[in-house]
Design a protein around this nucleic acid. Structure first.
Lengths: 152, 152, 152, 152
DNA sequence: TTTT
DNA sequence: TTTT
């Protein structure tokens, strides 16, 4: 029986096509950037919008769903849990942190088939191929997700 | 009408007495570290426990509640939203990130009055006073919460 | 500070155009039927789908949003709380129950403008007028929502 | 991938010891009444408290946990989904409804061992035995949970 | 840094 | 980097 709860519910828009990779152990991993935004009144009484970007990560079957069905611009609902990885930055010697949402439930609310004007076959595969060789945005202190990060 | 959802639900244990401060505008701010833990089976089939630490922040009336009612060791339920602040680290020139949960609902599940064996009057005020002068754990790149971070 | 939590999160499809009425005190009230469905495997290993219908109710500004923006077929996300009303059935003398979700947050996920093929101006007003005279599906033992049911 | 969401989060107090029974197929079933309460201001500006009672139901392993660890007065956190059963009342011929929360996650927040002053061994078995013969509160038109209600 |  |  659980003695604690760590639950996240997000509904927002996908900022980029998911990035797909595998752990050395062969588990499929998908990373995704999801935007939520809220309106608030600033001190002058003007309505402002603040956008929050969330780092989602999904494994195995969830990663397949994100890879096959979810594209930039899609509206997505997810449930998950918060996790924060930390490492010592090799260059600076400082501790660095990255907080991610490990996704447990996915619900795609807008089709991935380009109904929003974007072609569905817009070269995601080749983009992912490129990512696999370069992956600059994944270089979080040189410490990526390893098989030890996968909770099963 | 909201077009997105950013909701967090946490139930866990408070790691330290809350830290209380004020913005230059006079809004009370409370920071809190909350632990959630989950059990999982490792590759060898052994049960392991993983603890996740969450940075909570609360303003105004919520900060008063945390200050007056919540102490180290308390069991706490909160609702909130995820927010990530970033700044350029002055020393390293690198971008640094800190993800926090802005608390909107609080429910105290264990009394703060030392029923768990700890004295309720354990010098929180003086500890906070000490924190105000030294505050090493709050020096996130020298960039703390400002009035601009407060969404009202 | 809350000592309990009563929270519902629903994402589903609207079964009919909302029904709009007012309390004797003049507060606008909207009622809505929302369907969620889940897939499960039956004893024979076949995939089945089960649909659950939820009675939503919203007041004041929320009722305006439902009235103006939400139509049959729309995909809707809501947050709310569970409430159960009971009354003595006048005919049978038995206790009757009706559980409703009092909506606190609404997020419309599909446009109400007929993009699903239905005209947006499909005479909702006159339908509501008709409902007001007949309203068989609202006759819950002759006991409707009164101003006493409104929590403010 | 889910196309809808039906999620309930409750934190409250158990009204009575759980009732335990089995389906004809041998699946253990536990029923539980959980109270949540909220404070609100009435029209005269006075603070009032409203208590809501939720019918929880849990199967198999969850039913074991409720049977073994949860007693009247316990503080409980649960996640689940809303479900409504209906049947034709044999006496009156009218449709009757009962809404229940099918529990998927349980977190016991106060010990079941009588730390609240009540003995842990307070004859739950015999009370349940009594219930089994009389069970007036379970006589929902003579239609109880059957194996067909169990989603696995 | 918590808790079981 | 999304969306309205």
């Amino acid at each position: 029986m659980a003695k604690s709860v760590n639950k996240v519910i997000l509904l927002g828009n996908v900022g980029k096509d998911p990035e797909i990779r595998s752990t050395t152990g062969g588990t499929l991993v998908a990373s995704l950037s999801l935007a939520t935004s809220e309106r608030y009144k600033d001190k002058g009484g003007e309505w402002q919008e603040r956008t929050e970007w969330h780092n989602l990560v999904s494994y195995a079957r969830g990663a397949e769903i994100l890879r096959d069905c979810v594209k930039k611009g899609a509206k997505l609902f997810v449930e998950g849990r918060i996790t924060t990885r930390s490492w010592d930055d090799k260059e600076t010697g400082k501790k660095a942190y990255r907080t991610e949402i490990v996704v447990s439930e996915i619900s795609l609310l807008s089709p991935a088939d380009g109904s929003n004007g974007r072609p569905a076959s817009s070269g995601r595969a080749s983009k992912n191929g490129t990512n696999r060789t370069s992956e600059p945005e994944n270089d979080f202190g040189g410490v990526g997700i390893t098989d030890d990060d996968i909770p099963f």
